[in-house]
């Protein structure tokens, strides 16, 4: 697993300091990890842990204060952004605000082709769009001429994944992609990520606060707290036998179905 030619993304000592006036906040503090080809990993943390800042830096939407992000052996500082975004793409938390509400779905998906080097005419684009929508189990006729607000959250998030099927990147950063979706529809979305990995060999990094979700979907988990990664490893290992006191506390605080959770009785 750890042979270096299998590593698609390497994060080394990544640090982000936000400063406003004299106050400095270290959002991400010397974070290092690898993501392998075809692997699903989760970066787990509560709000303010620095996980979203890390995601933005990996997506090249935010400049690190120090440290390196190396994608396929090249530091992304020296890679053209367009070329990088052909390989690394993102999916965000709120499907409703991921779409420009002034455009219909067809236009939104056609815009996706801008990042690709090859140029397509509208007919070719539409053929690929239809195929991608079918890949995510959506009937194209149902959605193409609709505005985002006419669709449900689950449909929109699947369309965001259809966008990934069009671009075919090697790594997808998914920032809380199911947190605004009803739990009974969540499985549909998670299944698509699996499919993406199995068909296109895409590596996926979930950014989430939901430990159950991370445990369910990931091969490996990184636990982030106050800007640092406090524990990382195999999902089974990290969740079932956590070592770090923070991880232990975090997992204890999540209500499950079979373990006692509240210990107030009699106190």
């Amino acid at each position: 697993m750890s042979s270096s030619n299998n590593v698609i993304l390497k994060v080394k000592e990544l640090t982000k300091v936000f400063s406003s006036g004299r106050r400095k906040v270290i959002a991400v503090d010397h974070v290092s990890f690898d993501i392998h080809k075809g692997e699903i990993v989760s970066l787990v943390g509560q709000s303010g842990s620095g996980k979203t800042t890390t995601a933005h830096m990996i997506l090249n939407l935010l400049k690190p204060t120090s440290g390196n992000i190396v994608f396929e052996d090249k530091d992304i500082k020296y890679v053209n952004k367009r070329a990088y975004w052909q390989n690394v793409q993102g999916i965000f938390q709120d499907p409703f605000s991921s779409f420009n509400q002034f455009f219909v779905v067809k236009k939104v998906l056609r815009d996706t082709f801008k990042i690709l080097d090859k140029s397509f005419n509208n007919k070719e684009k539409d053929r690929i769009i239809v195929k991608a929508l079918e890949d995510v189990n959506i009937d194209p006729d149902d959605v193409l001429e609709k505005y985002p607000f006419e669709l449900s959250g689950g449909q929109m998030q699947r369309i965001m994944i259809a966008r990934i099927f069009i671009i075919k990147p090697k790594l997808v950063i998914a920032d809380e992609p199911t947190s605004m979706i009803d739990s009974i529809l969540r499985a549909n979305i998670l299944e698509l990520f699996e499919k993406l990995r199995n068909i296109q060999g895409t590596s996926i990094m979930f950014i989430t606060h939901d430990i159950g979700l991370a445990y369910y979907v990931s091969d490996r988990i990184f636990i982030m707290h106050n800007g640092k990664i406090v524990e990382e490893g195999d999902a089974e290992q990290v969740i079932m036998n956590p070592n770090h006191p923070y991880t232990k506390g975090l997992i204890e605080d999540v209500p499950t179905l079979h373990k006692e959770w509240l210990l107030t009785k009699g106190s």
Binding site: G154, I184, E191, G212, L213
Partner: peptide
């Protein structure tokens, strides 16, 4: 039943469980 079996919590037996796939709204 569907609601219950779509619950994901960090607990033994959750990984590898098939979640119910239902569509519509």
């Amino acid at each position: 039943e569907i609601l219950m079996s779509s619950v994901i919590v960090p607990e033994k037996g959750i990984r590898g469980r098939r979640l119910p796939l239902i569509s519509g709204r």
